[in-house]
Design a protein around this nucleic acid. Structure first.
Lengths: 223, 223
DNA sequence: ATTGGAAGATGGTCTGACAATCTGGTTGAC
DNA sequence: GTCAACCAGATTGTCAGACCATCTTCCAAT
């Protein structure tokens, strides 16, 4: 068995970079939800031609990161609370399963990485950098999903999390949320480290429920 | 509250039709897995320009229905058994949840539709039309997923099912598979009709396990 | 005030072109 | 005869420019 023959260099095309730049812009909130994205403006800002930009927009549309209405063009969708709830529910389904599988499957070196990422989140939780909180928390999940033995689970999860990144940023900024989140993540880590599948599922479920509640509150107190 | 103002006509663009035509072509096996899709040829066959075609290809790429390697172009990915297994496992997670929710949520008229689609599958199972079997079975699931109260669950499920359509066609052609599938689907229907959430989950789980096993066998007996 | 239409903005689509890269076969050296 | 280097064709990546269809907005006429 050849070990991960990923040596194939993949030339970075203009379109790929465009997709990544736009994706990052959406995550970081440069484009507010509901705002329209005008092709000619984006072309100028990104320095790419219209065909390249449009291909990039199609990719993002298929990822559901933007909406494209015929003859009106692309815009950043503003998630309703109903949709966000639906996403959180599916996330719960996936994360609980992943945490459970991870508890029996994760190799020692990956467990080490998980511990490190937990510490990184701990530091971020103490700081005021809400972007760092979201990033380190995402890293923590990413390791769990990456070690659940099912790449599809990971892929689907990534897609869903991307769509609620806007909510995560806000709920993580809530007073006290980061600290309680940290405790919940510690519980997940402890369960996985102990190889206790059932406890891992339970901890993951609890964490998701709390995250959902926090998101809802941040929603209601907004503007 | 205005009731579902979906009157907004959506003009069918060239690109949308191109996406649908290509998707259908992949489902029905016109493009064999592993085969390359040459842009210039597709343009001629579909009667669209290269920009339009390329946008359509980007959409399909994001849906994971095709793979695009830089400087080598698009091709239909040939699913390994490992990947197919991973997809079946996630499908199970989603379908079990959907069947369970559906049991308590489905309104009477939708239950009627579900019954009808079960009968349609029954007829298809007796015939030799394997495409009809796959289509009617898909309809059955579609109704369940559409009434689970979570549109995201439905959306993710649709995406996954699309990727294993190739396998479904083959396993449905296996001797006896359609009949045993019919019985399993009856069990799911009965549980939902009775409003028995637990039984619905159990039946859905059993069905998926059997479908997975059948897919594996059809895989092993192939060329 | 409402309706109707005209003008500008924007997206949808096409044509054509050129450069970068890949592929396969041919040639040449050993 | 085998292997390596190389060259030509095929294919994709990217761009520029254009045109028509549609939407939006604003102004004028009733």
């Amino acid at each position: 068995m050849t070990p991960d023959l990923n040596l194939r260099i993949s030339p970075r095309t203009v379109r790929q970079e465009t997709v990544e730049k736009l994706r990052l812009a959406i995550f970081s909130g440069v484009f507010q939800p509901g705002s329209r994205l005008v092709e000619s403006q984006l072309c100028e800002q990104l320095g790419v031609s219209r065909p390249s930009l449009r291909e990039a927009l199609r990719s993002l549309e298929a990822e559901r990161l933007i909406e494209i209405i015929p003859n009106r063009g692309p815009s950043v969708p503003s998630l309703s609370w109903e949709e966000a709830t639906a996403i959180y529910d599916v996330r719960e389904l996936l994360e609980v399963e992943a945490a459970g599988r991870c508890a029996t499957l994760i190799p020692p070196e990956e467990l080490k990485r998980l511990e490190k990422s937990l510490h990184a989140f701990e530091q971020a939780a103490d700081s005021e950098d809400s972007l760092a909180r979201v990033m380190t928390a995402a890293e923590f999940y990413s390791i769990i999903l990456g070690n659940c033995g099912n790449p599809i689970l990971e892929e689907v999860h990534r897609g869903l999390v991307a769509r609620i990144s806007f909510f995560r940023g806000r709920s993580m900024s809530q007073g006290g949320r980061a600290q309680s989140s940290l405790q919940e993540m510690r519980d997940i880590y402890d369960a996985i480290a102990a190889g206790d599948e059932k406890a891992a599922r339970k901890a993951a479920k609890k964490h998701l429920h709390k995250a959902k509640t926090a998101a809802k509150q941040s929603m209601e107190t907004a503007d």
